[in-house]
């Protein structure tokens, strides 16, 4: 039976057509995506990669809430110009604790995977609240409300850490116990700055 005859069978039977579409469209995922999802070394933490502390984790969730990855990538490609501009290129193991991944698809602003330590906390804070106060030509929006709200306003940090522990992030009971105290008194902007400052190459990469 040739392919067109096979098709004629499918187009006369809705059940077969549904099955045919599902089967044909699933092949790519089964061959290409499934093996990647089963490949443990893609999500094995690299040397020096630690789970986010409570303040950084709260900051990361703010980064997601404000849609920062709409304009900023976190993925330095292994190209000479990129390594010169940003720092060591990104490895899979560095993102082992990233749920979701935040590699991004657009650089309206610069890549941020190596931004940690390049500017002071004070500069980062000023820049987030009013970007043009430190970079006159910037087209980044300001985020003044980050200075007004508590970093863990809804008190969800412990449930977040517990959820991540269920997914395999190695938080201890003591870590989770201590989390609210670590965030006490901090504003959202402080948490976001802490997260940005944590975005740097693992220590093993920096020493020559």
């Amino acid at each position: 039976m040739n392919a067109v005859d096979l098709h004629r069978k499918l187009e006369r039977n809705s059940g077969l057509l549904i099955f045919g579409i599902l089967f044909v469209s699933a092949i790519g995922g089964l061959v290409q995506v499934l093996p990647s999802v089963l490949q443990d070394d893609l999500v094995t933490p690299g040397p020096g990669t630690q789970p986010y502390g409570p303040v950084q984790l709260a900051g990361r969730d703010l980064y997601i809430r404000e849609g920062c990855s709409t304009c900023h990538s976190q993925q330095v490609r292994p190209l000479l110009a990129e390594v010169k501009r940003y720092g060591p290129y990104s490895k899979a193991g560095e993102s082992a604790y990233d749920r979701p991944f935040l590699w991004g698809s657009k650089r309206t602003g610069p890549d941020l995977h190596r931004i940690g330590g390049k500017y002071t906390d004070v500069w980062q804070r000023m820049h987030l609240l009013d970007p043009r106060s430190v970079v006159p030509d910037s087209i980044m929006p300001g985020y003044p409300w980050l200075a007004e709200r508590a970093a863990d306003a809804d008190g969800s940090i412990q449930s977040k850490m517990r959820a991540l522990r269920r997914l395999g992030h190695p938080y201890t009971d003591a870590d989770i116990e201590a989390a609210p105290a670590a965030l006490a008194g901090l504003k959202e902007v402080d948490a976001l700055v802490a997260y940005l400052q944590a975005l740097r190459a693992p220590p093993a990469e920096i020493t020559p």
């Binding site: 893609l42 999500v43 899979a92 749920r99 991944f101 991540l164």
Partner: peptide, 10 residues
């Protein structure tokens, strides 16, 4: 939080 992490999530 996504069930997938990092490169697999990507």
């Amino acid at each position: 939080y996504s069930l997938f992490a990092g490169a697999q999530d990507a």
